[in-house]
Simulated scan of single mutants.
Amino acid sequence: MGGDQPADLFAAAVTSGALDLPLPGGGRTRERWAALRALGEQDLVLARLAEGHTDALAILAELGGHPPVPPNSRWGVWAAVPGSLTAVEEAGGWRLTGERPWCSGAVVCTHALVTASAPDGIRLFAVANPNDPVDGTWPAVGMAASDSRTVRFTSTPAEAVGKPGDYVGRAGFWHGAIGVAACWHGGAVGVARALLDSDRTASDPHAAAHLGGVDAALHGAGVALDAAAVVIDAEPGGDARWLAGRTRAIVERAASEVLERVGRALGAGPLCLDATHARRVADLTVYLRQSHGERDLAVLGEQVAQSGDPRW
């Protein structure tokens, strides 16, 4: 795709059309997530940027009522902490003011979908990147190259997308959440290849056992993602919250097991001497924390208890 840095790869992928993925729920959701998995295996920062861009395009398609997407524009979804931005409607349209943290692709993205607090509730807006990142707000090691800095908005022109509450109320919100898990899965495959390519498994039964555990975990996660895609394609407008919670939990656990097993099997060597592997491990460790851990599991458990029939 050209270039060595994730931001360069992302820009090239947009220009080449490589990120023109099938929309979720359109009959090719498995293909969409397979593409995100492949990007995650290649480079997790690239996958993070690509996931935001492809999710933004899916959101715009689902909610509609917006101008055409500019050619070769690179989009992010900057929706953390909705109340950190305020939206005011004036004669010339909406304007946003405030500081939004966790904006992946703070410089490389040309446009973004952002949430903001408006007089009638939390709304989603499409904006051109104001290009005012706040220095020192992303001192990360893992996912460092994602440039997820805070971005400052100062009376920035914006266009409302949908109605108040539409961003989280639409079916596709949960489809996008599973797309993130597809990236996690790809990142875990990338980490696992260090063990697969090692010659230790031929002489060390403990390393072989860890490789077996990795194989089972990754296969199970892949099956869960594929099964979720089938459900979403069959019921694109259905409530996928439970499905997303289950799938994300399965993939997160598998990825965490891969990190643990590969580290125990190979020791400190690759983490200290293989820069690519060390970055994969650091990136995956941070990216997995986009999950809310036990809070997400608690929500899942409540859904299971209320259902009375989890169909295990």
Rank of each mutant, 00 (worst) to 15 (best):
E51C: 11
R28D: 12
L46S: 01
L36Q: 14
E51D: 13
E51T: 09
G25E: 12
L39P: 01
D55Q: 15
V45F: 06
L49W: 04
E51A: 14
T29Q: 05
R30L: 03
G52Q: 12
H53A: 02
W33R: 07
R48I: 03
E51N: 13
G26Q: 08
R48K: 14
A35R: 12
A38M: 02
D55M: 15
L36D: 10
R28P: 02
D43F: 00
R32G: 15
A47D: 02
V45Q: 06
G25D: 10
L46E: 05
D55P: 05
G52S: 09
E41A: 15
P24D: 10
L39V: 00
D55S: 15
A34W: 11
T54N: 14
H53C: 05
A35P: 03
W33K: 02
L36C: 10
L23Y: 12
R37D: 11
E41Q: 15
L39T: 01
T29W: 04
D55I: 08
A47N: 00
A50C: 06
V45A: 08
G40M: 03
E31K: 09
A47Y: 00
R48F: 04
L49S: 06
A47M: 01
A34Q: 15
L39A: 04
A47S: 03
R30P: 00
H53K: 04
R48N: 12
E31M: 04
E41P: 04
L36N: 12
G27R: 07
R32M: 15
L39N: 01
G27Y: 03
G25P: 04
A34S: 14
P22V: 01
L44Q: 10
R28K: 12
G26H: 04
W33Y: 07
E51H: 14
W33M: 02
E31H: 09
G52C: 09
R32P: 08
R30H: 06
A35E: 08
H53F: 00
R37Q: 14
E51S: 13
R30E: 11
V45H: 06
E31N: 09
P22C: 06
A50N: 06
A50G: 11
G26T: 10
P22K: 09
L36R: 13
E41L: 10
G27L: 05
E41I: 06
R37P: 01
T54D: 14
G25Q: 11
Q42M: 08
A38D: 07
A35V: 08
T54S: 15
T29K: 05
E51M: 11
L23I: 13
L23S: 13
D55G: 15
